[in-house]
Each structure stands twice: as C-alpha cells, then as structure tokens.
Simulated scan of single mutants.
Amino acid sequence: MPWEDGVEMTEGTRFMTVAEVADQIRVSKMTVYRLVHSGELEAVRVGRSFRVPEHAVEELLSKSFYQAG
C-alpha cells in the first residue's frame, strides 16, 4: 500500500524507533536523524517522532556496502 510520500508499506511491516536503528547499525541517534532528514533513510513521522520500516534499514545497508581491496 503506497503512502502519500511514496513510502511503500506492506501488511506486517515492522517499524523501528530511531534508537533501535542506531543500535542495530552501531551509529548515534543523531546520525540516524541526519539520514532521515537527508532522504537516505525512509521514515514515517508519528507525532513528533519517526519510525523507520525495517526494510529501509536493510536497503540502506545493502546500498552502502563497500568491499575493500
């Protein structure tokens, strides 16, 4: 089901808090907020906070993967 901002949600989509995302990818909450505000990480605003779909974190990591060597 598409939402008005173009974020695609499916039934059963799991949402994470900014703190959970920061914990999972081992960065600060401020870094997650920067990623959200820059558009690099999809998020849905709920009141005054953001919720990030789990698939968006996986996409961010897969497209940010860098192989050294």
Rank of each mutant, 00 (worst) to 15 (best):
Met1Asn: 07
Met1Ile: 00
Met1Asp: 08
Pro2Ser: 08
Pro2Gly: 02
Trp3Asn: 01
Trp3Arg: 01
Asp5Met: 02
Gly6Thr: 03
Gly6Asn: 13
Val7Asp: 01
Glu8Tyr: 12
Glu8Leu: 12
Met9Phe: 15
Met9Asp: 05
Thr10Ile: 00
Glu11Thr: 05
Glu11Gln: 11
Glu11Ser: 08
Gly12Asp: 04
Thr13Met: 05
Thr13Ser: 11
Thr13Ile: 01
Phe15Asn: 01
Phe15Leu: 15
Phe15Thr: 06
Thr17Glu: 10
Thr17Tyr: 10
Thr17Ser: 15
Thr17Met: 09
Ala19Gly: 11
Ala19Ser: 15
Ala19Cys: 07
Glu20Thr: 09
Glu20Ser: 15
Glu20Trp: 08
Glu20Phe: 06
Val21Met: 04
Ala22Ile: 01
Ala22Thr: 01
Asp23Arg: 15
Gln24Ser: 14
Gln24Tyr: 11
Ile25Trp: 10
Arg26Gly: 05
Arg26Met: 11
Arg26Tyr: 04
Arg26Ile: 00
Val27Cys: 10
Val27Thr: 05
Ser28Met: 02
Ser28Pro: 03
Lys29Cys: 10
Lys29Leu: 02
Met30Ser: 14
Met30Phe: 08
Thr31Phe: 11
Thr31Cys: 07
Thr31Leu: 04
Val32Ser: 06
Tyr33Asn: 10
Arg34Ala: 11
Arg34Val: 01
Leu35Asn: 11
Leu35Ala: 07
Ser38Tyr: 00
Ser38Leu: 01
Ser38Gly: 13
Gly39Lys: 11
Gly39Ile: 01
Gly39Arg: 10
Glu40Ile: 00
Glu40Cys: 07
Glu40Asn: 15
Leu41Cys: 12
Leu41Pro: 07
Leu41Met: 09
Leu41Asp: 09
Ala43Met: 05
Val44Thr: 08
Val44Gly: 06
Arg45Val: 03
Arg45Asn: 06
Arg45Leu: 05
Val46Pro: 04
Gly47Leu: 01
Gly47Lys: 04
Gly47Glu: 01
Gly47Tyr: 01
Arg48Ile: 00
Arg48Pro: 00
Arg48Lys: 14
Ser49Leu: 07
Ser49Asn: 11
Ser49Glu: 10
Phe50Ala: 06
Arg51Thr: 00
Arg51Met: 03
Arg51Lys: 15
Arg51Glu: 00
Glu54Met: 01
Glu54Asp: 14
Glu54Trp: 00
Val57Gln: 08
Val57Arg: 13
Glu58His: 12
Glu59Gly: 06
Leu60Lys: 10
Leu60Glu: 05
Leu61Ser: 06
Leu61Glu: 10
Ser62Ile: 00
Ser62Val: 02
Lys63Asp: 02
Lys63Tyr: 02
Ser64Asn: 13
Ser64Gln: 14
Phe65Met: 12
Phe65Val: 08
Tyr66His: 14
Gln67Tyr: 12
Gln67Asn: 09
Gly69Ile: 03
Gly69Asp: 13
